[in-house]
Nucleic acid binder design. Structure first.
Length: 599
RNA sequence: GGGGGCGUAGCUCAGUUGGUUAGAGCGCUGCCCUGUCACGGCAGAGGCCGCGGGUUCGAGUCCCGUCGCUCCCGCCA
């Protein structure tokens, strides 16, 4: 007999009746009836009911047990008495009549129970993460995460990709997020940085002739947290391919994601062919570059219906500035005053002066609400016709410069969808967002910046791009798109990628436009530049976020529910106590003196 | 760095217009109970009402500050 077990707690069936079983596990729950006592014994594999009564030599021992003690039990497997079977449990036809109990690991009083599904505060859950991980929900999420990653690896390898490991201690990069720094002992005053992503490495792998790279890569960014953004570290399915166009990347990645979502999505339908939506269209239609396509609402430009109209606020704005537009958010089935007022007060809560609306109802087929009165029936009908709205429907309006109001229009569209229950649940709606602008205007510094990734290829002829004059062609610069793309699923940005800039001359030009001299480029990307100038293949890739994929597939709203040992929102690991003080000796070795902020 | 929400027993929460001794459920402890599987019953322990200040005859309740948690903005090539 094995020291601890000859079966797991998920094993025993009727076929084992009569055998002697040795099980080890956690006391999940004790039900003490005085004369008879039930112990639900739990391990990773399942739950088995262990029974003791006064005839059992272990009865006295059994009465002392508490939840979450780790024990070993020996006993006879027997059929449960007629009518007491538990069909909910795979082991529910049998029970183990205990003859011996050995306590392997007693437990003190628990700060949170494993049994049951009561909500517990985050700080307690994180401090006692190992208890939380014993609970069914987290335990299953973590298992599912592992299975998803297995499936991704298999699919990538089947697609001809090869897995690489890249350095964790690397050099700080000037663009992007704040780096995590690691001081060098050997080089006083110098620092390694943890990679924000293996971006340069994966490109160098392509320049090293390997052709198809992937990695489940740890990424480190010193950024503040969100519900869907871990502080500190997260994982990406990092992908790079040589001799590819944007379409080749899509063709390689789409089946992997679709397959994984079909495999683990619980039967929920998945977009079969991901639509391509240009960035500019996404903003116009959905007010965001990560639209939730489960929400059917599409916004439209209705500026002409308000220009010169009797609604002086909008008409005045339009007359004063040619950049001002009015966008309509249609709200089918929202045609009642209560809903429109609710939206209006929601908008005020968002810091807006209000939310103009028109609605149509029986008896007021030509439009109800103050706005309709102001602009008159003809213009109201123009709006109704353009949006295909009628009695029972409503429409809301946002006005101003689109650049300024999209941040409100997007959430307003989402709010209308939620309030009217228009968002289709139970499916995964994917799309590609393409044609991101290469540069953007930095109002603060009065200069042109990279708008996303400095390594993206501008979508413009090489000669034409090289001929650009950074000062004179500013409008032209801001109109250039990069060959860059995002994958969005149900309103969550899953990934970002690009066809890379593999030409050193174009690279130098792009950095010059953003105000970086060749010296900066040389100092910060010297290795990369060398590689680009010694025979670089055209290449591109993408990097879907593993944590977000798992989050969507587990139906969780928060990344901490799908990460084994997450940090809290302030980037602290409450279980391990990180970050922590270090000894003066350690600091001395690293040539570091602390200069702490005044309290 | 900024804004919103929350903070009452170990946990989830209730607590009226400011008014006697702050409650319930779960958990915990003890006792009873031979077929439960969210077992049941009885009894009990457990509270600086986050902290500090103020208003008031009187504050869990109102005001100010502060701390913590959380969500968001900034930030996220």
């Amino acid at each position: 007999m094995h020291r601890y077990r000859n079966h797991t707690c998920g094993d025993l069936r009727e076929s084992h009746i009569g055998q002697t079983a040795r099980l080890s596990g956690w006391v999940h729950r004790v039900r003490d009836h005085g004369g008879v006592l039930f112990i639900d014994l739990r391990d990773h594999y399942g739950l088995t009911q262990v029974v003791a009564d006064p005839d059992s030599p272990a009865f006295k021992e059994a009465e002392k047990l508490h939840s979450e003690w780790v024990i070993r039990v020996d006993g006879k497997v027997r059929k449960r008495p007629e009518g007491t079977e538990n069909k909910e449990l795979p082991t529910g036809m049998v029970e183990v009549f205990v003859s011996e109990i050995e306590v392997l690991g007693p437990a003190a009083e628990l700060p949170m129970p494993v049994f049951g599904d009561q909500e517990y505060p985050e700080d307690i859950r994180l401090k006692y993460r190992f208890l939380d991980l014993r609970r069914e929900r987290l335990h299953n999420n973590i298992i599912k995460r592992g299975q998803i990653i297995d499936s991704i690896r298999r699919r990538m390898k089947d697609g001809g990709f090869f897995e690489f490991q890249t350095p964790i201690l690397t050099a700080s990069s000037p663009e992007g997020a704040r780096d995590y720094l690691v001081p060098s002992r050997i080089h006083p005053g110098k620092f390694y940085a943890l990679p924000q992503a293996p971006q340069q490495f994966k490109q160098l792998i392509m320049m090293s002739g390997f052709d198809r790279y992937f990695q489940i890569a740890a990424c480190f960014r010193d950024e503040d947290a969100r519900a869907d953004r871990s502080p500190g570290e997260f994982y990406q399915l990092d992908i790079e391919m040589s001799f590819v166009t944007q379409q080749d990347v899509f063709d390689a990645v789409e089946p992997v994601l679709r397959g994984v979502f079909e495999e683990f999505g619980g039967g929920m339908p998945v977009t079969q062919k991901f639509p391509l939506i240009p960035y500019a269209d996404a903003l116009k239609l959905y007010g965001t570059d990560k639209p939730d396509l489960r929400n059917p609402i599409k916004m439209q430009n209705v500026t002409s219906a308000f220009a010169g109209s009797g609604f002086k606020i909008f008409a005045g704005m339009i007359a004063a500035d040619p950049k001002v537009e009015v966008w309509a958010i249609p709200a089918p089935k929202g045609g009642n005053r209560a809903f429109c007022d609710r939206m209006n007060s929601w908008a005020q809560g968002e810091g807006q002066p209000g939310l103009g609306y028109i609605f149509w109802r029986e008896g007021e087929e030509s439009g109800a609400g103050p706005l309709a009165k102001n602009i008159g029936p003809e213009r109201t009908k123009q709006i109704a016709d353009q949006l295909g709205l009628g009695v029972g429907d409503a429409v809301f309006f946002v006005a101003g410069k689109p650049k300024d109001f999209v941040k409100f229009a997007g959430p307003a569209r989402t709010k209308v969808g939620q309030e009217l229950d228009l968002i289709a649940k139970g499916k995964f709606e994917f799309c590609w967002i393409v044609d991101f602008p290469m540069f953007e205007w930095n109002e603060e510094d009065k200069k042109v910046d990279f708008s996303h990734n400095p390594f993206s290829m501008p979508n413009m002829g090489t000669e034409e791009f090289l001929a650009l004059d950074a000062a004179a062609d500013q409008d032209k610069l801001l109109a250039i798109n990069a060959i860059q793309y995002d994958i969005v699923c149900n309103g969550t940005e899953l990934s970002s990628g690009a066809i890379r800039n593999h030409r050193p001359d174009v690279m130098k030009k792009a950095f010059a436009i953003a105000g970086y001299g060749e010296d900066v480029l040389e100092a910060k990307f010297g290795g990369m530049l060398r590689a680009l100038s010694l025979g670089a293949p055209p290449h591109g890739g993408i990097a879907p976020g593993i944590d977000r994929i798992v989050m969507l597939l587990c139906g969780e709203e928060n990344l901490r529910e799908v990460v084994l040992f997450p940090m809290n929102q302030r980037a602290e690991d409450l279980l391990m106590g990180a970050p922590s003080d270090v000894t003066p000796k350690q600091l001395k070795e690293l040539h570091i003196r602390l200069n702490l902020p005044q309290k």
